[in-house]
Design a protein around this nucleic acid. Structure first.
Lengths: 192, 192
DNA sequence: TTAATTAGTAGACTATAGTCTATTATATTA
DNA sequence: TAATATAATAGACTATAGTCTACTAATTAA
């Protein structure tokens, strides 16, 4: 039954979550993940601590949610523009990801860090952030396979790991991926 | 002047640092990075808190030092056995790294996590852990270049990032790199 | 022997993530 | 209207990394 059951009890004020998330995102971008305390989010947004912990399990969980609306836009599949080669599509995707990272890399790296000590959060981060981006690259490569733009002998999961790893690795070592890296990645993936 | 100047003041007891490091490594392997508190290291090793913070800046700094003696052995260059192809050398290196990771991946991932919120530690981790491993792979690929085992057109820094990224990426997403991954990596790098 | 210097101990203190409890506010249902 | 359930507030409490200060121990240099 898809009844619209209205839960008993006081309903959540939708403005409360919006307030907390936007305050969090703003503070994070101004000061970075570690520098922003839950206490400062509380005092800036004017809510009680328990209101935050009623909705999110941890600080990382809140921050992931706060940047999710924005980040998911960058994980939208590129137009299947058939004038563009798969190579161009991959390049375009990487450039968009790198531009996004230029703004939020500190926060993303902090979330990857948090995922190392919280397996539940790791799963959540994987599902919401990692998997969608993996799928886009996988789709591009599969199309390239079927269009004969890369050899059918090559292993797609390995290439996907290569591509993502190739910018995660410098990122986590404090190096911003740039246009040159994107060019080098596509050149290596699509070389004859 | 390379005078053997003996510093004034009470000399450090070399047993103290050894005690702290071995206790730390043992506890870390038993319980993992997050589960081991500085307090537990103190009570197990019997030293004072300040004794630890006199020598190491942070918990991560201590842990890096504690596993360094062991990990650096796995970053030793492989024998330049000219019976072995570069492909085999790379495969051997990856297998050794993966076996090492099987034991200490939780700790290594926690150190990578710590590096995200402490740029000084990031630099230290890069110099002691990342760079030596990069160099080994780079050397193998350069030799492969000059021996004609891979095309001279291919960009070595990009390949190095591919190789390391290809196991860092699954590792940080909670997936243990295995033999199959090592095979796929060398197959992709050394394909004709 | 004395002064200076550094190592190590002991424990109070700070900052911060997260938990717990009591209280008040706002909704549904009987 | 009364009972019940959940939201939100307020603030005490816990655990832990790291700092600070006072003290004692071991060494060098004068």
């Amino acid at each position: 039954m898809a009844r619209e059951m209205k839960a008993a009890g006081r309903p959540r004020d939708p403005k409360t979550a919006e307030n907390i998330k936007s305050t969090t995102l703003r503070l994070m971008r101004e000061q970075g993940y570690a520098a922003v305390s839950i206490a400062s989010i509380i005092s800036e947004s004017g809510v009680a601590k328990q209101t935050i912990y009623n909705r999110w399990k941890t600080k990382a969980d809140l921050v992931l949610d706060a940047i999710f609306e924005e980040t998911e836009r960058y994980a939208s599949a590129p137009d299947h523009d058939f004038n563009k080669s798969c190579r161009e599509q991959l390049y375009q995707f990487l450039i968009e990801v790198f531009e996004h990272l230029e703004r939020d890399s500190r926060i993303i790296c902090a979330l990857i860090a948090s995922a190392q000590e919280d397996k539940l959060f790791q799963k959540s981060f994987r599902e919401r952030f990692v998997n969608p981006r993996e799928k886009i690259v996988e789709d591009i490569l599969r199309r390239a396979h079927s269009l004969g733009q890369i050899s059918t002998e090559r292993d797609i999961p390995t290439l996907v790991a290569f591509i993502h790893g190739a910018f995660w690795y410098p990122l986590l070592n404090g190096i911003q991926p740039d246009r040159k890296l994107a060019q080098n990645i596509v050149a290596e993936i699509f070389r004859h």
